[in-house]
Computed example of a mutant assay.
Amino acid sequence: MAPAGVVDGPEELTPEWLGEALGAPVTAVAYEKVGSGQIGACYRLRLDGGAGVPRTLVAKLAAEDTDARSFLAPAYRAEVSFYRDVAATVAVRTPRCHYSAASDDHTSFVLLLDDLHPAAQGDQLAGCTPARAADAVTNLAGLHGPRWCDPTLLDLPWLNAVGQEDADSLAEIFGPAVDTFAERFAGDLDGGDVRTLREIAEVIGPWVLGRAGRFGLVHGDYRLDNLIFPPEPGTGVTAVDWQTLSLGHPARDLAFFLGTGMGPAERAAHERALVAAYHDALASYGVTGYGLDECFDDYRFGTLQGPLITVLGCVYGTPTERGDRMFLAMAARSCAAVRDLEALSLV
């Protein structure tokens, strides 16, 4: 833990504390809350100070709901550990982290990150253009490629890989979660999508353990709401929210992004080119012995990630009006991808 330690709320982000964390004198600070703050709380800081003090930063802290922090502690540990142990070893664009710390039990944490304004968050409901999708998948390869099948990742105690017990638990909870999802959106959810979700529930255990020979870092929630895009027509998207980082098949991230972030017709029209762009970027990081056809087949296999994360995120998350519309859109798009690509035939 760095000398400045952990803070529990924005009122503790004093000039004195920030000066110690940044290693430069801070004379004044003002903050405003940004984002919805369901898993963590984010604040934009405006700083005055000496040389080396950024004019603005984003501070990310534990959730304001202290009762939720114990449940969220593994996510906090993953994000702090990503910036501490992993970010410098991969090429994916992330905000620069100026300071990180967590309590011993990981129920409190603090990150001081670059403020990326005027870059703006993507919109999961609206979807994205093929050009922005190409930017995003090329950036994603920067997470996967540099440590592709790297056995030393298995030595990181905070980085989880799915085992048989996890697969059994997932198989046990996903079917009831699908029932809850279908009941909640009865009348809004297409009958074909309900059937697809139920078919996925029957094979989700074997699927999550499948194709284990290829593994790497998996963001776990690589979607438009967690991507910050520069003003158009610029490129250079930045990925945020590293609380779901795990070990797994990298194509799950690729399939999740394309399957939930583009409408079915547009995805189908551009997915081969987008997967090829991702594959080319992997090769630029030294990934060999992995052909484009294999990559596209893994992408097909990975499309079950979309319905899986959509259903679990909805059923176990805090309901909001936008969230409901978003989850419905993600379910429709990702179920269409599963059917179009005949992904269930690969399990």
Rank of each mutant, 00 (worst) to 15 (best):
G175P: 00
G175L: 05
P176Y: 11
P176G: 09
V178M: 12
V178W: 12
V178A: 10
D179N: 13
D179C: 09
D179F: 12
F181Y: 13
A182S: 11
A182E: 06
E183C: 08
E183F: 07
F185A: 03
A186Q: 13
A186M: 05
A186Y: 09
G187P: 12
L189F: 14
G191F: 04
G191R: 12
G191A: 15
G192Y: 03
D193I: 06
V194G: 06
L197A: 08
R198C: 09
R198N: 08
E199A: 15
E199F: 00
I200D: 01
I200G: 00
I200Q: 03
I200L: 15
I200W: 00
A201S: 15
G205A: 15
P206L: 11
P206M: 11
P206S: 12
W207E: 01
W207V: 10
W207T: 07
L209G: 14
G210H: 04
G210N: 08
R211Y: 01
A212M: 02
G213K: 12
R214I: 01
R214G: 00
R214V: 04
R214L: 05
R214H: 13
F215N: 00
F215P: 01
G216I: 02
G216F: 02
G216L: 03
L217N: 03
L217H: 02
V218N: 07
H219Q: 15
H219I: 03
G220S: 08
Y222G: 03
Y222A: 05
Y222E: 06
R223G: 05
R223S: 09
D225S: 13
I228D: 11
I228Y: 09
I228M: 15
I228L: 13
F229R: 11
P231I: 13
E232L: 14
P233N: 14
G236S: 09
G236K: 09
G236Y: 06
V237T: 15
V237F: 07
V237E: 14
T238W: 04
A239P: 11
A239K: 03
W242F: 07
W242G: 02
Q243D: 04
T244R: 11
L245F: 01
L245S: 06
S246V: 02
S246N: 13
L247S: 10
G248E: 04
A251W: 00
A251V: 02
R252Y: 05
L254Q: 04
L254E: 03
L254H: 04
F257I: 03
L258F: 03
G259R: 01
T260N: 12
T260M: 14
G261Q: 10
G261R: 05
G261F: 06
G261Y: 03
M262F: 02
